[in-house]
Design a binder for these strands. Structure first.
Lengths: 336, 336
DNA sequence: CTGAAAGCGCTAACAT
DNA sequence: ATGTTAGCGCTTTCAG
C-alpha cells in the first residue's frame, strides 16, 4: 500500500464536491452540519488515511498543542525517579489529549531553553517538575503571564500564579505518618532533611511539626537537621544526634533514608532493635533495603497525569481543578 | 517593562516603511539586502524584542524545527543512565541549532506516540535511542520514508535505512578491551550477556570473539551465556560457570557486572584474588562498586550530540557525517 | 445546513 | 536592493 503523504483538507473538499469549511466542520464537529455529509467526509478520511497538519491547525488557532516540560538539569547526572516517573505519566496523558511534550533542561539561573520556547511560541503552557522558595523560573513565567502548571505547591511569594498547582497531600501525609512514627515509641526523635529551599521540604517539616504539636511533644525533643545532601553530612548529623541520645530518625526523603541507614549501620546499630528509621518519601530502594524502611508513599504517576490533564483542560476552557491533590499511603515495613 | 506579546513581521515592515520581504530577508540573511536596511531592521527587532513565530515559519517552510526522541517505555520503571545522558545531550545540541525535542514513549509493539507525531507532521525527524534486530519501529520509519537517526548501529536487515547512524566504536572497543582482559591471565574466560536482540550486544560479542581469534583461543575455552536479565539468571549462570572451572568473567554491561559481582561474592569469591571481573559498558556504579570494576568506557553525551548534530545538518542540506563513531576509553580499576 | 473569503505569520518566486 | 504576490493548510466569521 502506497502512502499518500500530504492529503489536505482542500483535496478532500474538491474530491467530495463540498467546501473546505464543510470538511473542517465534519472533522472538528463544530458548527452545524448534516449527519449525512459528516459521515461522507469521515468515510473519505478514514479510507484515505487523512491526517490534519498540526502546523496549519496551530497557526490558524494560535495554538501549538505542545506542552513544555521543564526538567532540572541535574537529571543528567543523577537519577531522580520522581522526574522519570512524572515525565512518563505526563507524556502519556498529553498523548491522550492530542498534545505533545517538548522537553527543556533548565536550572534556576539558566532558563535559556524555556525562554526560547516561549519566545517562539512553541508551546501552549509549561509544566514545572518542582518548586523552590526562590524560583526564578517561577518569577519568569509569572512575569510573562504565561500559563504554567507545577508539580508541587507554590511558595507564598508566588501564590496562585500557576494555572494548575498539583501536589501530593504532603502536609496531611507527613502529619499522619509522623503521628504514627512519633507515637510508636518514646525518646527524642529527629528529622533529617535536605534543602529547605524546596517547597516540598517545607511542607514535610510543617507536617512533622503539626504532629509534634498534636502529641504535645516539645520542640527540644525533636531536633531537626537540614542541609543533609551527601553521605558525609548525613553521617555527621547522625553521629551528632546519636551523641545526644537520639535513636529515632525520620528522614525527609528516600536518599537521606538510605544514607542514614548506612550511617546507623556503620555505627553498629541494628534496625529496629537499636534505632528506628523511616522516610517521608518512598522508592524501590527503600523497599529493597536491608532491612526495608517504612515510608510514606505517594504516586508520582498520578501526580503527573493530574497536572497535565488539568492544564490541558484549562487550555481548552473546560472546567478544571486548579489544585489537584493526590492522596498518600503509609507503608509499614517494620523499620519502626 | 511591559511585554508586547505578538509583534509580527508585518508590524515591523509597516513601522519601518519597508516590505515584509525585506524584513524577512534581514532576519534570515537570505537574498540580497543592503547592509544599511538590514541593520535598521535588526536594531528595531533588538529594541522591541521581536521573535518570529515558529508556527508560521514552520508552516511556510513545511518544517517544524522539532525532533522526536523515542524513549523506551521501560524508562518509566527503570533508570537507564544511557537514556538519561543521551537525552540531555540531544536536548542541548538541538537547542544549539534552534531545534526542540519532543519526546515519545514507545515500545516495539506500541508505537502510537510516534505514529501520531509523524501523522500530524509535528517533527522533522526521529531519533531512536536504541536499535534491535527485529525492530518494528525501524521498519515503520523505513516504510514511511521518514528521516531518522539512531543511537547504535542498524541491523543488517535495515542497513543504511537511517539518515544518521551514530555509534560508539563498539567493535573496536570490545575487541581491545577483550584482548586486555583475555591477555591478563589464563584459564577459561566467560562472557555474560543479555538480550542478543540488541544490536549493541551483537557488536560486543563480535568484538569479544575477534579478540579470541586474535589470541588463538578456541571457542570451547570461552563460554558465552546470553539472556542474563536478572539477578537470578545471573547467579545460575555464574554458578554453572564456576562449576566448569571458570574464574574469569567478562560482562556485556554494567547491570550484569553488578549482578555477577553479587553472585561471586555470594559464592565467597574475592575479586581479583579468586576471580576476575570486567564490563564492556561503564557507569558510576562500577566505579563506586566494592571493589571497583574495570570497564570499557564510552561517552553517551558525545554520542547523543553527534547523532543530533548530524541529523540537523542533514535536514538543513549541509554536509554531514552519516555514521559518526565515538571512541572508547579503557578504565582499569584493578578487578582483573 | 453549506460556502466564500479573510486571515493566522511567515517564506519564496517573480517582478521591478 | 526592494516590493508584489501568492501560497503553506487550516479555522472562522459572515452570508446565503
Amino acid at each position: 500500500m502506497t502512502f499518500k503523504a500530504n492529503l489536505t483538507i482542500d483535496d478532500i473538499a474538491r474530491e467530495l464536491g463540498v467546501s473546505k469549511t464543510t470538511v473542517s466542520r465534519a472533522i472538528s464537529g463544530k458548527g452545524r452540519i448534516s449527519a449525512a455529509t459528516r459521515e461522507r467526509v469521515q468515510a473519505y478520511i478514514e479510507l484515505h488515511n487523512y491526517r490534519p497538519s498540526a502546523a496549519a491547525k496551530g497557526l490558524a488557532e494560535s495554538r501549538t498543542y505542545n506542552l513544555a516540560l521543564v526538567l532540572p538539569k541535574d537529571f543528567i547526572n543523577l537519577d531522580i525517579p520522581f522526574v522519570r516517573n512524572t515525565m512518563s505519566a505526563i507524556c502519556e496523558e498529553a498523548f491522550h489529549h492530542n498534545y505533545n511534550i517538548m522537553i527543556c533542561l533548565c536550572t534556576d539561573d539558566a532558563p535559556d531553553h524555556l525562554v526560547r520556547i516561549l519566545d517562539h511560541r512553541k508551546a501552549d503552557a509549561v509544566i514545572l517538575t518542582r518548586t523552590l522558595e526562590n524560583d526564578r523560573l517561577l518569577d519568569f513565567l509569572a512575569s510573562r503571564g504565561f500559563p504554567f502548571a507545577t508539580l508541587g505547591s507554590l511558595p507564598l511569594c508566588n501564590q496562585d500564579k500557576a494555572i494548575v498547582e498539583a501536589d501530593h497531600d504532603q502536609l496531611g501525609g507527613c502529619r499522619a505518618f509522623s503521628l504514627a512514627f512519633l507515637g510508636s515509641g518514646t525518646g527524642k526523635a529527629a528529622l533529617l532533611i535536605n534543602d529547605m529551599n524546596y517547597i516540598v521540604n517545607q511542607s514535610r517539616l510543617a507536617g512533622f511539626q503539626s504532629a509534634c504539636r498534636e502529641l504535645g511533644i516539645p520542640l527540644e525533643q525533636t531536633p531537626v537537621c537540614s542541609g543533609i545532601n551527601d553521605q558525609e553530612s548525613c553521617c555527621q548529623a547522625v553521629e551528632g544526634l546519636l551523641a545526644q541520645g537520639v535513636r529515632r530518625f525520620l528522614c525527609s526523603d528516600e536518599d537521606i533514608a538510605e544514607r542514614a541507614l548506612r550511617a546507623l549501620k556503620a555505627n553498629g546499630l541494628r534496625i529496629p532493635q537499636d534505632a528506628v528509621l523511616a522516610s517521608l518519601a518512598d522508592s524501590d530502594k527503600l523497599q529493597n533495603a536491608v532491612p526495608p524502611i517504612s515510608a510514606l508513599h505517594f504516586d508520582p504517576l498520578a501526580l503527573g497525569s493530574a497536572a497535565c490533564r488539568e492544564m490541558i483542560r484549562a487550555l481548552q476552557d473546560e472546567p478544571y481543578d486548579p489544585k489537584p491533590r493526590i492522596g498518600y499511603e503509609i507503608c509499614m515495613r517494620g523499620s519502626f
